[in-house]
Design a binder for these strands. Structure first.
Lengths: 193, 193, 193, 193
DNA sequence: CATGAATGAGCGTTCATTCAT
DNA sequence: CATGAATGAACGCTCATTCAT
């Protein structure tokens, strides 16, 4: 028996179906079938559909988080750190469209809103966010960046990425490494003083 | 007479409930009640819930479209035209959070994807988009803008707006006219050569 | 129009199935089928299965209550009033075995316990209970009855009835009017001083 | 060895949970957990949940039966024997509310009905019942008791007890030894000629 | 045209029971 | 013998849609 990790199977099936059809287009029965388990089995691993969805999102966030920490240029300039994060997210999501579609849907649902609120209130804080936030605050302090609230600078940094990754995944544009680098530079132009 | 009172009532009720509770948190019966009509009556105006949602989105797009055409500085510089559009969208959505929440949900759902595809394939095209596209193509041609595909420039222009309007509506930041103007300038920095 | 045909059909079907098979042996789908309606239709009349059950019990209590008030010998002796109630309950339940089986199950379920508690706390009080209670208190005061708490006297009065009606319905004994009268007298012997 | 530790643990757990939450509020998994065994283990001792419940009831009946035989005044008067049984049941159930709640639920469920039927048809007969029955028949024969069928006299004897023990357990009244003795006397008044 | 009662497929979830280990 | 993960039928309930009035 090679694939005995049922929990993973279920999460993968959920990821795929929800990414493709949305939360409501992915009934537990379909998830179970795709995961190769019985419907009731899911409930041994996740108390409810909501909890499955939340845990899946949390796991994806953790993966993204650790990805950003890898090769993070901690001693680099503000620009280097800023562009590292933007570029890394671009590449990760382009390589992982299901993850992107899922997280996108999650963040636009009631789930995401309350989670977002928790994070902002400091109830939750990931290391990667701290590092990025510090880079930004440093940039503002030393007048490398425009004097905006952190959240505005985040919007300028990630807004285009979200929008463009989506267009890429839907096939409306094609983003290659060269283009990603150039777009990342453009985002830097938006925030730099 | 296509746009009767009842039709409008239904669309308004749908807008409000869907913006607030999502597509699946807004049953037809609730929409009917809020609109002051019987459940069956909705089906005289809209063949199905899906069609209601699609038509509602279309109407909102039309409204936004005509808004952008108003006071469009047709003879102005590329920068003037670009910033007009960004700023106008910022202001409209901040003043119309229900419309924003609805369109946001729509665009992240399966509905939005196919619609988007239609548009790009030229099946649908709004006047405002033509004007904005022309401004951008002009800017690229005259080397005012960075040499990116139009869609990338759109991402750089509107990505931050979508992200920041959302944060504003959720109460995470407060956008006033001064800040909007400064952010719009920052978006311009991203796209200008 | 509160008591439509369908509402009655549903209540009757529920009464019959629950009396026969218990709360858990009577799924909503069976009730619907027996009532000749679709499953969803039940929920137009009753918010939930629990509420259906509670309303059914309440209705049966009301019927029993008004039955006891009919021909109640208000000016009679304590004995006359006591025996009227015991005898009337005997006869009603023997003629209405489904009602008996339902109420029996109800009173032994969590539903019944809290309802009972409410009644005793005076949150709910039916006219018939008041009359019976008054007769008993009068009997105790004038030393016609043994000096027991009211509840003990009720136990002596109704305990045998519940037990014997049940045996009758199950076919273990046959109660006719003569026997009922004699048993009622025996209950009187238990309570009288 | 038929009555192993595990078997007892399971029965005790079942008794407690069913008494408290009813048959349907006591899943096998909960019973297993409370008994400190795996869910599957229960099925080594009991073929099914129904059988577990039936055997539990049977065991409780046996315990009650032997209790009644203890100190049974075999040579005493009919009254002594009658009152002994009534009083002993009162006391046992007041001291063992879980047992009472279980047996009550059992007897009002489909389980209880068929069991009752078996008993009356003579398929099952416990020694205690024989003794009580004999006392009653003797009383009827010698005209100490009213001339009722045995089952009616049982109803008069035990109906009040069941009703009042229940009220005691639910906290609606408090039965102490003095009150129990007096109530037992009252039951005797009901059956004696 | 408008109504709203009725429908029934489909949902998330539970749990008695099985069986490979 | 004991385990507990897995099963899947069955439950209570929702809601988009229909149609007799």
């Amino acid at each position: 028996m090679r694939y005995t990790d049922k929990r993973c199977d279920i999460m993968e099936a959920a990821l795929e179906l929800i990414a493709e059809h949305g939360f409501h287009g992915a009934p537990m029965s379909d998830i179970a079938e795709k995961a190769g388990v019985a419907a009731g089995t899911i409930y041994r691993y996740f108390e409810s559909k909501d909890i499955l969805i939340n845990e899946l999102n949390q796991e994806l966030e953790t993966i993204v988080s650790s990805l950003l920490l890898e090769e993070f240029p901690e001693g680099g300039t503000v620009q280097e750190r800023f562009c590292h994060v933007v570029r890394a997210l671009f590449r990760y999501f382009i390589d992982h469209p299901l993850q992107f579609r899922f997280m996108e849907q999650y963040s636009y649902s009631p789930y995401g809103v309350s989670r977002r609120r928790d994070k902002l209130l400091g109830i939750r804080g990931d290391a990667d966010r701290q590092l990025f936030r510090m880079a930004i605050e440093e940039g503002v302090a030393e007048a490398t960046l425009k004097n905006f609230p952190v959240m505005v600078l985040c919007g300028l940094a990630f807004g285009p990425m979200v929008s463009l990754v989506r267009d890429h995944i839907l096939g409306f544009i094609h983003l290659d490494d060269v283009l990603i680098d150039r777009i990342t530079e453009a985002c830097w132009d938006a925030v730099k003083r």
